[in-house]
């Protein structure tokens, strides 16, 4: 057991090191120059050169990574070229926002997907299954920005029930915070749920064919109990895998949701930094979201071994 997790941690370290190297090569890969957005179009070539020299953008990536890590070890993630504020503060403020959005979205997705998948798998081809299939494929086929704008059109513009955009601090205005959270979380969760339903349903149908389930069924075990206690756990592998991965996607992919709902999270930070080629911010965002993904994938592996003891034995 211990050894498995040591290996896993080693792997995570390699991934992060590679990620760091790629990240530090970005200034060479991306066209566009931060000097223009910071110094303005009238800057003299000498000033631009001096500005770029100070950033060490031309150093080899391993050297830049070493510098970055040395500074980061002291809590210094650099300073935004555009705002002049410490990147660490920016990340500290925005990370919780995106995390909340993401976790909320997963809860919504699971709350929709689990019952629906169970009902669908119990009678494949039945009414619930067909309606659920149609709904989930309509959702999958709808681009997320259309879902988001549609939710705003219904709940904010037509019903006036929820605010269309914006964000409130949870400590200062808890009720407002929840109201502003509702639509973005729903938008994130709905898209997610559609995919989850498909996977869970497939897994459940497979499981329900197993002899031990058929036996329990013939003993007259009621459907909800049977599904929840016997079938759900072994059927949730693929779904769990997807949940683990969307943690990563949400950091890079929450750009759309955050932009439509005007939420000051990591996605928006990343987008703004990319537009201005604010490399200290871009680098910190990539490394932080990368680390989050790696941690999440370890967590998923851990949950695997809890869900299905066979994997635990197998990984000996």
């Amino acid at each position: 057991m211990m050894r498995t997790w040591t290996v896993r941690a080693g792997r995570a370290a390699i991934v992060l090191a590679l990620l760091g190297l790629v990240t530090m090569s970005l200034p060479m890969l991306l066209t566009g120059n931060p000097a223009l957005s910071v110094l303005g179009p009238d800057a003299t070539p000498e000033r631009i050169e001096a500005f770029l020299a100070e950033l060490n953008l031309d150093d080899p990536p391993p050297a830049r990574l070493a510098d970055w890590l040395a500074a980061a070890a002291q809590g210094d993630l650099g300073t935004s070229l555009v705002t002049g504020r410490p990147v660490a503060d920016e990340i500290a403020r925005r990370l919780p926002v995106t995390l909340e959005l993401l976790i909320g979205g997963q809860i919504v997705a699971l709350a929709i997907a689990v019952p629906l998948a169970m009902a669908s798998a119990w009678k494949p081809g039945g009414r619930v299954d067909r309606a659920g299939t149609l709904a989930s494929f309509l959702l999958i086929a709808t681009p997320p920005f259309i879902i988001a704008l549609g939710l705003i059109a219904v709940f904010a513009v037509a019903l006036g029930a929820l605010p269309a955009t914006g964000w409130r601090d949870a400590w200062i205005d808890p009720a407002g915070h929840l109201r502003h959270l509702a639509l973005p979380v729903l938008a994130t969760g709905l898209a997610e749920a559609a995919v989850l339903v498909r996977l869970l349903r497939a897994g459940l149908i497979e499981t329900l064919d197993q002899p031990y389930i058929l036996a329990a069924r013939s003993r007259g075990m009621s459907a909800p109990v049977l599904l929840a206690t016997r079938a759900l756990r072994p059927s949730s592998f693929s779904a769990l895998t997807i949940v683990g991965m969307t943690v990563g996607l949400a950091f890079g992919g929450s750009v759309l949701i955050e932009s439509v709902f005007a939420i000051p999270g990591m996605g928006q930070l990343a987008m703004g930094a990319i537009e201005t080629r604010d490399f200290p911010v871009i680098e910190a965002v990539i490394i932080f979201s990368g680390a989050a993904v790696v941690v999440a994938s370890i967590a998923v592996d851990l949950i695997y071994s809890l869900v299905d003891p066979r994997t635990r034995n197998a990984s000996r």
Binding site: V7, L18, V22, L249, F251, G253, I286, V294
Partner: peptide
């Protein structure tokens, strides 16, 4: 398993949008 894991983790860990931007701009 380790090598495949590192490859997939790396692709997943890198924000997709930034990757796409870099490639598209090139």
């Amino acid at each position: 398993d380790g090598a495949v894991g590192i490859l997939t983790d790396l692709i997943l860990a890198f924000p997709a949008l930034i990757l796409i931007m870099a490639v598209v701009s090139l």
